[in-house]
Amino acid sequence: MKALIVIDYTNDFVATDGALTCGEPGQAIEGRIGELIRDFLAEGDFVVMAVDAHREQDPYHPETGLYPPHNIIGTSGRNLYGRIQDIYEEFEDTIHWMDKTRYSAFQGTDLALLLRTRGITEIHLVGVCTDICVLHTAIEGFYNGFSVVIHEDAVASFLPEGHQWALGHFQNQLGMTVRKK
């Protein structure tokens, strides 16, 4: 069994006016992420929306001093970007929404348990940012014993060099599959 994990594909990370946007590179993958969600659902696979959740000016969160406030609970910045929000609403009873408070979707969540109880051994990662949250989720998935597939045409980042570095790291240092369409 396999699962698709859509990481941080929200207004704050993708929209032109998002609080911490990767902009056009993130917007360019919207269609492919939508295709993959529909494909995984059609095959009866598990789909997870792993969405960053922050409290404004949380003095105890390690990202507070690193980035401007983003994905603040209760704001439209946490809504999924574009048509992905529409797809989520259409399949809300089937797609699992999961708040996360760290880069990795595994850290401080029950994601590993959710996957294991469903017999899932292979995870497919899409979303933003390739060299931050996708990277940390991939590494923790690797250390939790899951086979990890990164969809190169469905991940994006702020910096092209960070994006390229992460794709190489997935493949060359971690032995993960980096899949092109």
Score class of each variant (00 low, 15 high):
113 L>S: 13
99 D>A: 09
110 D>T: 06
137 T>M: 13
116 R>L: 13
126 V>K: 04
118 R>S: 08
122 E>A: 13
100 K>F: 01
124 H>F: 12
133 C>F: 02
96 H>I: 14
111 L>R: 07
143 Y>C: 00
145 G>K: 00
148 V>K: 02
109 T>Y: 01
142 F>S: 01
117 T>Y: 07
116 R>Y: 13
94 T>P: 00
113 L>M: 14
92 E>V: 12
131 D>Q: 12
107 Q>I: 03
134 V>A: 05
131 D>I: 06
133 C>K: 08
106 F>I: 02
147 S>G: 10
118 R>H: 10
97 W>Y: 15
119 G>A: 03
129 C>L: 13
129 C>N: 09
146 F>A: 03
141 G>A: 13
97 W>R: 03
106 F>W: 09
98 M>A: 09
107 Q>G: 00
102 R>K: 13
96 H>C: 15
131 D>R: 10
135 L>D: 11
110 D>C: 06
97 W>G: 08
110 D>M: 09
105 A>F: 02
148 V>A: 08
105 A>N: 11
98 M>L: 15
93 D>C: 04
148 V>S: 07
112 A>C: 13
136 H>S: 14
108 G>I: 04
93 D>A: 15
105 A>R: 01
109 T>N: 03
107 Q>W: 03
145 G>A: 00
119 G>L: 02
138 A>M: 06
139 I>C: 04
112 A>Q: 15
130 T>E: 04
123 I>F: 05
106 F>E: 13
101 T>A: 10
127 G>F: 06
100 K>E: 02
124 H>R: 11
103 Y>A: 12
149 V>C: 05
147 S>L: 11
139 I>F: 03
104 S>A: 11
138 A>L: 04
101 T>C: 13
139 I>P: 00
96 H>N: 07
116 R>K: 15
92 E>S: 14
144 N>C: 05
128 V>T: 08
136 H>D: 13
120 I>K: 02
106 F>C: 11
92 E>D: 12
99 D>W: 06
